[in-house]
Amino acid sequence: MNPTLQRIGIILLVSGVLAVVANSVHPRKIPWVQDWSRHVEAKATKQKIKVIPLSVALEKFQTLESIFIDARSAEEFEQGHIPRAASIPFESLDEYFPILGGLIDSGRELILYCKTRECDDALMLAIELQKMGASNLVLYVDGFELWEKHGGEVER
């Protein structure tokens, strides 16, 4: 057998063994199989809602062309939020229907966010907005916590 092929085989095999051993003792080990369909991003993609990370959200914030919508509770919004963001808490959505209509009619891109990558309030709100006829929806998936942590502007 060609020695190079043999060595390629050894590299592939040893890497696999290292991956197994390292993941079994790793303090941040991950499961070998994960149900990604429950992930907020997977649900958004299924609903055909565009997803953006922090780097892109910061760029869009600077251009002033998009409207940020905060789907967290009113209390959390009061404690700090992205400047110029509209507060539409998903938990009390009924009270905000008149505002939602205005936001949709503005024709501007609506960027929705909540607290972290794991929360799904912003996604649920986006789905409601979709049902109301909004099409220009974007989910900022990293959430307010990472925005604040990485130096994004905050209004209190």
Binding site: S15, G16, L18, I30, P31, Q34
Partner: peptide, 19 residues
Amino acid sequence: PDALVNAASLYFSWLEIGC
């Protein structure tokens, strides 16, 4: 496929380091 994501990510990262 979702079922292969974690296994592939673990394997590729060690393959890169191994190389």
